[in-house]
Amino acid sequence: MKLSHYDDEGRAHMVDVGAKPATRREARARAFVELSPAALAALPTNPKGNPLEVARFAGIQAAKQTASLIPMCHPLALSFIDVEARIVEGGVEIGATAATVAGTGVEMEAMTAASIAALTVYDMTKALDKGIRIREVELVSKSGGKSGEWRRS
């Protein structure tokens, strides 16, 4: 199997997607922020503001900046980005969905949104808990393009 971001000499390059048809593409990613019970209990009264809302906004903004952060990632006009952050047992579950109509997918935008939202929860709560862990940043599903549908089992 050949990785498309490398040429015949092994140098990294941006893949030319100009000949690919523009189709609707969507991706969903998730992340988990593990917090202590004390930090979880303090989330609604954080003096910096509501960490979950700040994380949502940070994830949305990050998705729009993905091509500036990932060197071989194409700049995309996103038609939709949504980030959810909710308190669950043991921490905060982050979900991010990105969509576009383009010749390349939005997996990196969804993964970037989930990652930055998780890092923002960390930033907003680090004074309460030095043992915070960010876990399971992963692609959940993608649709569109040549490879079609994919879902994590």
Rank of each mutant, 00 (worst) to 15 (best):
I116K: 06
T100M: 06
T112S: 08
M124K: 03
G105H: 00
T112D: 04
A113Q: 05
A114R: 09
M108F: 02
V88H: 08
A102R: 06
E89W: 06
E109R: 00
T97N: 06
A102F: 02
A102D: 15
T100N: 06
E107D: 14
T120L: 03
G91V: 09
A102I: 03
T120H: 07
A118G: 14
A99N: 06
E109L: 01
A110S: 13
A118Y: 04
A113F: 01
A98N: 01
G103Q: 14
T100D: 01
L119W: 08
M124C: 12
I116H: 10
T104D: 08
V121D: 00
Y122R: 09
T120E: 09
G103M: 06
T120R: 09
Y122L: 10
V121L: 12
V101H: 10
I94D: 00
G91N: 09
T104P: 09
M111A: 13
G91K: 05
E109M: 02
R86C: 11
T125L: 13
V92R: 03
G91C: 13
R86G: 10
G103T: 13
T100I: 04
I116R: 06
R86Y: 03
A99L: 05
M108W: 04
A99F: 03
V106D: 03
E107N: 08
M108P: 00
M124G: 07
I116G: 06
T104C: 09
E89Q: 14
A118V: 12
G91P: 12
E107L: 03
G90Y: 09
T120D: 12
A114I: 02
A96T: 03
E93R: 14
E93I: 01
Y122V: 09
E89T: 14
Y122T: 10
V121N: 04
E107M: 00
V101W: 00
G95T: 13
D123Q: 12
G95F: 12
T112V: 14
G90P: 11
A98D: 03
V106T: 15
T97V: 15
T120M: 13
A85K: 05
G91W: 11
R86S: 14
R86K: 15
V92H: 10
S115Y: 04
R86E: 15
I87G: 00
A98W: 02
A98T: 02
G103R: 13
A118D: 08
T100W: 02
D123Y: 12
S115P: 11
V106L: 05
I87W: 06
M108N: 00
E89L: 10
T97D: 05
V121E: 05
Y122C: 07
V121A: 06
I116P: 08
I94C: 01
V106E: 02
E109K: 00
A118M: 11
T104I: 10
V92A: 11
G90F: 11
A98V: 01
V101T: 15
E93P: 04
T97G: 01
A117M: 12
T97L: 14
A102M: 05
D123L: 12
A85D: 04
A85V: 07
V101N: 10
I116S: 07
I87V: 15
R86F: 07
E93L: 15
T125M: 15
D123N: 14
A113Y: 00
E93F: 07
